[in-house]
């Protein structure tokens, strides 16, 4: 189990995260929802070592782990697809997929190995790109998102975090990505998905965690929750049914 424990983060005067906790278990898809500026992306950055929290800790199986750099996250098997696509547009698809984790012999790249692995990986995810040796700048938005997600899988992670993976995608690509997320769960990965699309969230998640103004604002088993209750938790309105589970803080 991989968790954030009472994590806080301040940006100047903005309290982006205020003692937020979150658990991720193998074979489970957790959806993280909340309004714009609720702190979702910040929490993701903490879990992926991009941002160091001011307080609280990241834990693995109950023990605090060092998470001060993206390298630490990589080492712990946490892979992240950030909201702002972290791709190098000047590099080709193969180079982007293996960035920071290049196949090498001593210090020399092994381009053929990487290209073949890239082709096989993209094929297994049913991602279609005509020439994987063109710079990413030449690809469409959907193709870039697919590359970004595929990239997260290269290091064979145990935890995959997707920050709004379908935000920029058309209907068909969205369905593909959701299918891909299910496949990740079936492989036994712990998956955290951020989305504003509650229909998508209900379709794929096992559990829904709500953030509001940087705090935990509710947690639901997807199957047992109603859309109204989730919306209420997000907006801070009154829940009509399916009250948040005990043990989580409420700001509303």
């Amino acid at each position: 189990m991989f968790s954030a424990r009472t994590v806080s983060k301040k940006y100047g005067a903005v309290q982006a995260l205020d003692e937020v906790s979150l658990d991720l278990s193998p074979g489970e898809v957790v959806a993280l929802v909340g309004d714009n500026g609720a702190g979702k992306s910040t929490l993701v950055k903490v879990l992926s070592g991009v941002v160091t929290p001011d307080g609280g800790s990241v834990e693995q199986d109950g023990r605090p782990v060092r998470m001060n750099s993206p390298h630490d996250a990589q080492r712990l098997g946490v892979a992240t697809v950030h909201q702002d696509l972290a791709l190098c547009e000047n590099l080709d698809v193969v180079a982007n997929l293996f960035l920071g984790d290049e196949r090498r012999r001593w210090s020399v790249l092994r381009p053929i190995r990487m290209e073949r692995a890239a082709r096989d990986l993209l094929a297994s995810l049913d991602v279609r790109i005509r020439d994987i040796r063109v710079p990413v700048a030449m690809l469409s938005g959907g193709q870039r998102q697919s590359v970004a997600i595929a990239r997260a899988l290269v290091g064979e992670p145990r935890v995959v975090i997707l920050d709004e993976p379908t935000a920029a995608l058309g209907v068909e690509q969205t369905a593909q990505v959701l299918e891909l997320i299910r496949r990740l769960r079936d492989r036994g990965l712990a998956v955290l998905v951020i989305s504003h699309n509650l229909a998508d969230v209900r379709a794929i998640s096992d559990r829904i965690v709500v953030l509001r103004l940087g705090r935990n604002a509710g947690e639901f088993r997807t199957a047992e929750s109603t859309p109204e209750a989730v919306v209420a938790a997000i907006t801070g309105g009154v829940a009509l049914a399916g009250a948040p589970r005990a043990g989580t803080e409420e700001s509303a």
């Binding site: 190098c88 000047n90 960035l99 090498r104």
Partner: peptide, 24 residues
């Protein structure tokens, strides 16, 4: 063109933040 260092040079030049997140 052919070393990991060279690849990382291009990566940092293309998108330093992406390179950092990739653990470079």
């Amino acid at each position: 063109q052919h070393t990991v260092f060279g690849r990382h040079m291009y990566a940092v030049g293309g998108n330093a933040e992406a390179a950092r997140r990739a653990g470079i």
